[in-house]
Amino acid sequence: MSINRREFLKGLTLAGGSLLFFPACKGNISFWRVLTEEEASLLTAITEQIIPADEDPGATDAGVVNFIDKQLSGFYSGLKDSYRNGLEAFQDYCRKKTGANFEALAWDVQTGLLKDLEANRIDHPYWEENTASRFFSMIRNHTMQGFYGSPRHGGNKNYVSYKMMRIDYPHVIGRNIYTPRSETLNIYQP
C-alpha cells in the first residue's frame, strides 16, 4: 500500500489532535513547561515587538518564547513570579486602557504600550509596587538572549540570528584536532 505525503501528514494531525481529548487531561492544557497558553500568547506578541520579523525571521520564528519558558523551568526559575504577575498586570492594564488583549491590538498601538512600560509611564496598582521598566528590560534581555544565543537553550532556531548577521556556523578554520591528553604532558622544559 502506498500513502502519499499529504495523507500521511493529515493522519499525524489527527493522531496528535486526539491526544487533546484523552479523558485524564481535563482543564486548561498548556504545551509549555511553565507558561500558560494565555501567558505564552501575550509573551509571543511582546517578544515579536522586541525583535520583529522582516526579511529575516523574528522572535516568534526563532523560538524565543520557547527559550524563556525553558529557562523559567531552569536557570531563571526564580523569575517565575516576576513573569506571571507582570504579564497578568500588563494584560490587565492593556484591557482597561484599550478594551482588548495586547495581542489583538494593532502593531503601532502595541509598540506605544511597550514604550510606556519601558518608561514607567503606566498607571496601574501593580506597577506602583513593581518597577515597570525593570520588568520590560528583563523581557527585552531574555528576548535578545533567546534570539542571539546558542540554540541549545531553546531559541535561535536553526541559527536564524547567525544567518541574519552572516556569521558562518559551524565555525571551522583549518584543522579541528583534539590533542590527546598524554601529549599535553610532554611539554617544553628549559
Binding site: 578554520i173 583549518g174 579541528n176 583534539y178 590533542t179 601529549e183 611539554i187 617544553y188
Partner: peptide, 22 residues
C-alpha cells in the same frame, strides 16, 4: 606548534571559552 600542543586556528569564540584544540 609549541610544547606538544598545536597552533591556534583563530576561532572567534576564544575569550570566555576553553580552547577546543588546546
Amino acid at each position: 606548534p609549541y610544547a606538544g600542543r598545536p597552533a591556534c586556528y583563530r576561532m572567534r569564540t576564544c575569550v570566555g571559552f576553553a580552547c577546543p584544540v588546546n
